[in-house]
Design a protein around this nucleic acid. Structure first.
Length: 269
DNA sequence: ATCGGTACCTGCACGC
DNA sequence: TGCGTGCAGGTACCGA
């Protein structure tokens, strides 16, 4: 579920937790933890205050403040495919973390367990290694990075070291809007095509954030609200349906082992 | 250094 | 009803 717009929506929905203190933490599934067993992790979080919530690509960084003010650290959250953060509610079958706060509770739910939680004293390397934010990177940087890559454009958009936060939905939607075939080779995009792609990525992400993200099956923000950008998808999971522009049936191909949806007439290699 | 393929997990929709 | 198959927003890791 969660790509940049969904993660942004979730991050915003837990922003009201700034100022809250973690009273106790419980971790029920070691698999989703990075570097540290459940007990260690719980002890590290206990007593720390939530100082800030910020998104980096598909990561949520919760900055923490130690009670003694000697340290802070970060709770690093990645939602994987099915991760959810929920404010309140009852723990369920797939609730893997429960943070009890001085007021309220934050649950981490994840049926497929591809997401992860991590505590890090320093700014986490996994995050500093990411590429730039697609909504902040200058076009010139985007274009020069494109020129250096021989891979398929769809695969490159999914590569978090190229730009951070684009996933399968928004890669397909951006390529459709730019009129570029998902199998096109990145460094061979010529003329106005890099510009069109850049503009399409920005437009799609901006619109999706405004819509609260895409709720494909079960995505909701921390308050349980669904997004509605799925209503604006033009190609994603519309295989066989008519293209909104030319009525040609939308096709599906595999690129980098991921489903890619495109219009064979509107999107040229 | 880059690239493509595979593995990791659960749930759901589908055809038989 | 049950079973097998394929598919699903993600990344990490492997060998070429």
């Amino acid at each position: 579920m969660p790509e940049l717009p969904e993660v942004e929506t979730v991050a915003r929905s837990i922003a009201p937790l700034v100022g809250r203190r973690i009273v106790t933490a419980e971790f029920r599934c070691p698999r989703i933890l990075r570097g540290g067993d459940p007990d260690q992790m719980a002890v590290r979080l206990q007593g720390r205050k939530i100082a800030a919530v910020k998104r980096y690509g598909k990561f949520i960084l919760v900055s923490l403040q130690d009670a003694s003010l000697k340290g802070g650290g970060y709770l690093v959250i990645h939602l994987g495919m099915t991760g959810r953060l929920l404010l309140g509610g009852d723990p369920g079958k797939h609730t893997h973390a429960i943070l009890t706060l001085d007021r309220g509770v934050l649950l981490y739910d994840d049926s497929r367990q591809f997401g992860c939680l991590q505590f890090s004293e320093e700014f986490p390397q996994r995050v500093s290694r990411l590429g730039p934010e697609p909504l902040e990177v200058p076009f010139e940087d985007f274009a020069s990075a494109l020129k250096r890559r021989k891979t398929r454009i769809k695969a490159l958009l999914l590569n978090q070291t190229f730009v951070r936060g684009v996933g399968n939905i928004y890669a397909d939607e951006a390529l459709f809007r730019a009129g570029i075939h998902p199998l096109a080779v990145a460094c061979r995009l010529r003329g106005e095509r890099p510009r069109r792609l850049f503009d399409a990525v920005v437009a799609v992400l901006t619109e999706a954030i405004a819509a609260g993200g895409s709720s494909i099956s079960d995505y909701v923000d921390a308050e349980g609200r669904k997004g509605f950008f799925q209503l604006s998808h033009r190609v994603y999971q519309r295989t066989g349906e008519p293209c909104v522009t030319c009525q040609t049936p939308i096709r599906r191909v595999l690129v980098a082992q991921r489903s890619s949806h495109f219009c064979p007439k509107c999107q040229k290699r």
